[in-house]
């Protein structure tokens, strides 16, 4: 759910044409591909890239909200946000396992993914590079970031790769609770004091460009590459980035307005003729910088991850020595 169409070039396949045709036939029939089935390298590589980014984004995505876990303003909120962040770690775990199975032929595992993340080779989703400045941001992430994630993952609930599709089914169920959790924080602020409403509106203003960027650029021209949409060809996802963004706006703009909130874009409106939302494009150059780990909190969050990783290395070594099942 935490990825966008990357408009990348399809690698020329040197696959056996008969195997390949059979495979494509299965895709077209709506069969589910399993981990040990034959699959073209392009399919495997696309899935590895997609699911590892999704999984690592869940884990990096735990950090912005985690910043507010010890500070949450009541015991009930502390418990709820802790459970939510724990779920995200669980999603990461589930997805990294799916990726590990796909990477097996390449002799790579979870440790490699973590190292790729720390070295900057493996990217995480743009929203998680942003700061969470107030408690309202903790609510905003749950409400609209998880809300966007639900839209984006619903788009893949029928993905051709069985293990991913099943993981998404489970994740999706939990995401619904996350969005409710976020909405509950937002509602309390919206119905609260003047200051509470103020931090809420301020939060939406700051998160707005990131939310538009969430689904990725509309067309290839934006990012300067023009390639075929591999994930659609292989029936991993259905809709385009822009279709998803429109679905997001369809669902959330009425809710934003009904809470008496505004978005920082005066051009934003629904065009009845074109039947779509008209909005001001976010700064896609900034987007490119953000996903290259040059966002406002990219370095700080990677540093936290890196410290946790290196600081605990003695534990992983100790467990390897002990040799038993890890607790």
């Amino acid at each position: 759910m935490y990825h966008y169409l990357e408009h990348q070039k399809g690698s020329k396949t040197n696959e056996d044409p008969i195997l390949y045709d059979n495979f494509m036939q299965r895709i077209e029939n709506g069969d589910k591909i399993e981990a040990n089935d034959w699959m073209p390298a392009e399919y495997r590589d696309t899935l590895i890239k997609l699911i590892s980014m999704h999984g690592i984004s869940e884990i990096m995505g735990a950090l912005p909200e985690k910043e507010w876990v010890p500070k949450a303003p009541s015991l009930e909120r502390k418990l709820a946000i802790m459970a939510k962040v724990q779920d995200e770690m669980g999603h990461g775990q589930l997805l990294l396992r799916v990726t590990e199975d796909l990477m097996k032929p390449y002799g790579r595992n979870r440790q490699h993914l973590m190292e790729d993340l720390l070295s900057g080779r493996l990217k995480f989703h743009n929203v998680f590079h942003m700061p969470t400045k107030t408690w309202a941001d903790a609510g905003m992430v749950g409400w609209l970031v998880d809300g966007a994630a639900i839209i984006s993952q619903t788009n893949m609930l029928d993905a051709s790769y069985g293990p991913y599709q099943r993981a998404l089914q489970r994740i999706c169920k939990e995401e619904v609770f996350h969005a409710q959790h976020g909405e509950s924080i937002i509602m309390a602020l919206a119905e609260g004091t003047e200051d509470q409403r103020k931090i809420l509106q301020d939060s939406l203003n700051r998160w707005w460009p990131s939310l538009l960027m969430f689904f990725g650029p509309a067309s290839a021209e934006t990012t300067g590459s023009s390639k075929q949409e591999i994930t659609i060809k292989y029936n991993i996802r259905k809709s385009t980035n822009e279709e998803l963004r429109q679905a997001f706006l369809d669902k959330y703009m009425p809710r934003v307005f009904s809470l008496g909130l505004t978005v920082p874009d005066e051009t934003m409106h629904y065009d009845d003729v074109q039947e779509k939302w008209i909005y001001q494009q976010p700064d896609w150059n900034e987007f490119k910088l953000i996903i290259q780990n040059k966002g406002p909190r990219s370095k700080a969050r990677l540093k936290v991850r890196e410290i946790a990783y290196s600081n605990n290395s003695w534990v992983r070594e100790a467990l390897a020595v002990a040799g038993g099942d890890r607790p």
Binding site: M82, Q93, R326
Partner: peptide
């Protein structure tokens, strides 16, 4: 709760967090 997301591996993170939530309960 300060440890959340920082345990030596993800399984430990999830387990520790359950314990922490129960304890806060």
């Amino acid at each position: 709760s300060e440890w959340l997301g920082l345990a030596p591996h993800i399984e430990a993170d999830v387990a520790f967090s359950s314990i922490t939530q129960n304890t806060m309960g």
